[in-house]
Design a protein around this nucleic acid. Sequence first.
DNA 1: AGAAGTCGGTAACGTACGTTACCAAATAAC
DNA 2: GTTATTTGGTAACGTACGTTACCGACTTCT
Lengths: 225, 225
Amino acid sequence: MMKMMMVLSQCPLFQDLDAAAIHEMLQQVSHQVASFQKDQLIAVEGDPCRHVSVLLSGQVAVQKVYGSGRAVTVATFSTGDIFGEVMVYADHPLPSTIMALTQVSLLQLPRESVLTLCQMSPAFLENFMRLLSNKVWLLNEKLKLLSYASIRQKITGTLLALYQQQQSTELALGISRQELADRLGIPRPSLSRELALMKADGLIDYRKQSVRLLAPESLEEIMLQ
Amino acid sequence: MMKMMMVLSQCPLFQDLDAAAIHEMLQQVSHQVASFQKDQLIAVEGDPCRHVSVLLSGQVAVQKVYGSGRAVTVATFSTGDIFGEVMVYADHPLPSTIMALTQVSLLQLPRESVLTLCQMSPAFLENFMRLLSNKVWLLNEKLKLLSYASIRQKITGTLLALYQQQQSTELALGISRQELADRLGIPRPSLSRELALMKADGLIDYRKQSVRLLAPESLEEIMLQ
DNA sequence: AGAAGTCGGTAACGTACGTTACCAAATAAC
DNA sequence: GTTATTTGGTAACGTACGTTACCGACTTCT
């Protein structure tokens, strides 16, 4: 029990609420702490999502299970993580299966309880909103990067974002080539090659972790193609 | 005024609420109906997002404005559409600029008013949640498609989804090649070519808008690579 | 100082895929 | 019927990019 409050007060759903407040709120709505054995199914693809879950202990995997029974892990969650918060209010069934990777303990808040909590506590409401909104934002960012047509566009897009942010043509990257390549979803040699080509084209210059924009106008042009 | 209630009762934020209820709810929270001239800025990139807006009439554009002043339209909204519902609770400034494309009339609900409305009306709360959740779901779907490595994976992914859905190896597509290609984000000839190759490889057979899966096992294999 | 590990640049090679173009089949229009 | 129009297949071509491999520059350890 003490353990549970520790986890909850750390998790974004209950931030800015103290243990006493959380305890009291929970007492007023139906909820359950459920345990699952290793390899036990927590929720199955295609089912409707019935509750928001907070992982109190253990690890779970989000899996795509194919007809043949083969399963591919799409994501994993561990203590303090929340799941189901999106699908519980979306008009769609679960797109994947949730399985316990270890012995697992979950706080399960039924769909209706979450609504009640939102009505009860402005702080909880705001936390939930922020959770969803930030998720949308993050997905949008990823999507933007993926939808650039070429590697040059990906690079240019991020350079121009930094340009706007740092208000200078002398940009500090602050990350290694490998990290940058990972963010853009491309292999490192491809990144290096394109940087070299852009340098040859007179668009940029660089050494180590700093990049100088030589022709911001032309860079913007690239984003339009 | 009558006009405004017409629009609101149609929009997903106020669905399942009748005009009288909406009217009463709005009277209890601060809100404003704002007008903008054609080409006037409604909100500027980098600013914090202060309200959720419902477009009562006219059209607005979401634009990315570059340093040189050149603007690229990312999306447009028209009567009945909602915007700002994500950024108003996300921990980030506006990623783009909003501009009036025509004479525009907006219902602007300040951040706090929306919270109050959620507390007041369970139906409104649920509508808002559904709005955000469905957006996350949609983005996830797009992201899934985009993140497949090859065209063959994109095709296979959607075929297997249909397989699971229709529970038969004889799939009805229900859309034209062009539409399918658009959804996958690839040119139509590329789709045709890959379908032909997959047929040659003995994976599928097809004619017109129906596809038969000849080797579901092998198709699953493709998704793992 | 030498060994070992990390980090970035570069080259060679093959291929998946975008692009363009043209053609056949099916459907709609007259 | 004969044209248009849409819809889908196919071929030829160039290239952007993934893959692999190797090498030099820098750090860190002993």
